[in-house]
Design a protein around this nucleic acid. Sequence first.
RNA 1: GUGGGUGUAGCUCAGUUGGCAGAGCACCGGGUUGUGGCCCCGGUUGUCGUGGGUUCAAGUCCCACCACUCACCCCA
Length: 418
Amino acid sequence: MIQLIRGFKDILPGEVELWQKIEREARELLERFGFREIRIPVLEKTELFRRSIGEDTDIVEKEMYTFADRGGETVTMRPEATASIVRAYIQHKLYAPDPARRLYMVGPMFRRERPQKGRYRQFYQIDAEILGVASPLADAELVFLLTSLFRRLSVADVEAHVNSLGCAACRPSFRHALQEMLASVSDRLCEDCSRRRSRNPLRVLDCKVPECRAALAAAPSILDHLCTDCRRDFDLLQNALAALGVPYVVDPRLVRGLDYYTRATFEIQTGALGAQSAVAGGGRYDRLIAELGGPDLPATGFAIGFDRLAEIAGLNPEELRPQPDLFLAALGARARQAAFAWYCRLGERGIRVAMEFGEKSLKSQLKAADREGAAWVLMVGEEELARGTASLRDMRSKRQREVPLAGLVDRVAAMLTE
RNA sequence: GUGGGUGUAGCUCAGUUGGCAGAGCACCGGGUUGUGGCCCCGGUUGUCGUGGGUUCAAGUCCCACCACUCACCCCA
C-alpha cells in the first residue's frame, strides 16, 4: 500500500466542510476591507527566499524543499507567502499609480520539519498583506481583522501579543546593548543561544530554556531603545487597538523568525495547541520591497496557520455536513429509470439530491436517506407508475403526499424551493 | 536532527504464564413479501505496522526497520 508522505495529510469529507467554512469567512471579511486575492506560484527561485527570509534563519538553513529542476535551476517550494507577494508586487508594478495595495492569498506552504501537533510539512496559510502603507493604523487593522475573524469562528483561549522591533535607526543600538548584556551572562546560556549571541542576538530573547530565561531576566527591552518615530508608531498602534476594544498584551520578548520584520510585530497565541502556540503571526517589513529590488515602500502583513485554526475553531463539523434536500427511492428497473431522470433534472434546478442506484429494499433506501439527513424522500415503484403518481414523504413529520408524474420535476422543485 | 509513547476489523479498543483473533460502534440482512430513527434476531469485516529471529506453537518473547504521535527545536 502506498501511503502519503510523512508530514503531509489528506483533508477528508467531514473535516473539509470546516476548512471551507473558515476559508469562506476569511475571504468575506478580507474582501469587505478591500483585500483582493492574489494567486502566486508554489515554486519560486530559491534566491527569493534566501534574500527575503534571511540566510541565517532556520527556514532557509534547514527546512526548505529545495531542488534542481530538470533545467538545472535551483528552485524551492514556498515556505511562506510574503516573499512571493512582494515579488509579484514589484514585478507587475502593482505600486503604480497608487502604492497602497491590500492583497490576500490562501494556500499550502512547505517546510521540512519534524511533524507534531499543529505542525505539518505541507501546511496551509491565509495570508494578508497591506503594501505601500506606512501608518500604524494598517498594523492595527490587521490585528483587528485577526481578532474579528477568530471571534466569528468561536475560537477560544487566544491572546494577541504585540511588540516593536524598531527600525534601521534604532535597532542597532538595542542590538549592541543586548549583546553586551549577553556577554555578561554567556556562561549561563544554552548551546543554541551561545551561537545566536553574535549572529542573531534578538532570537535569544525568544529562547524557552528555563536557564536562558533566568539569565535574561535583566535583559534590556527593545521598547526602551525605540527611536522617536518607532515609539510614536508603537503608541499609535496601541491607542488604535485600545480604542477598538481589542485586548492585547505588550510582549517585548516577541521576536519573529524571519529577518525581514521591522517595527510592529504581532502574534495570536493559543493555549490549546500544546507547544505550537502561534495561530497567526505577522508584522511590518518596511525594508523588504526595496531589498528585493522594488521602490522604497513600507508594508505590513500577517499569516494565519490554517491547520491550527481549524483545530481550535469552536465549530461543530457535524453541523456543517451537507445534507440532501431530496432522496429518490426507486423500486424496480422501470421506476429507477424514471427516478434517475428526475434526479438529474432536480439537481440541475438547485435541489440537493441523492439516490440509490442499486436494487435495494425500500427499507434500506429510507434508512440511507435518514442516515444522510435527507429532508424529503420521493418514492416510486410499480404501484406508483400504474397509478400515475409518486409518493413524497416529509422525513420529519412523516407525512406523505402524492405527486402526479406529469410535470413532477416542476412541482417538486417548486415545493422544495418555496 | 534528538528523545518519550503508540501501532490488533471502517472507528474506539480488549487480548491472561506463548496455545483456534475478540468486544462495542458502524455496515448488511431479517423481524414488517413496499416505509427511516428505537427494539429484537442473525451475518460480514483482519497483511495483529513491515521484515527477520527464538519456539512444537508468536498478536504475545528478541532484533531491525517503518509509520503515527507528543515533546525538544522552530514557526503559522
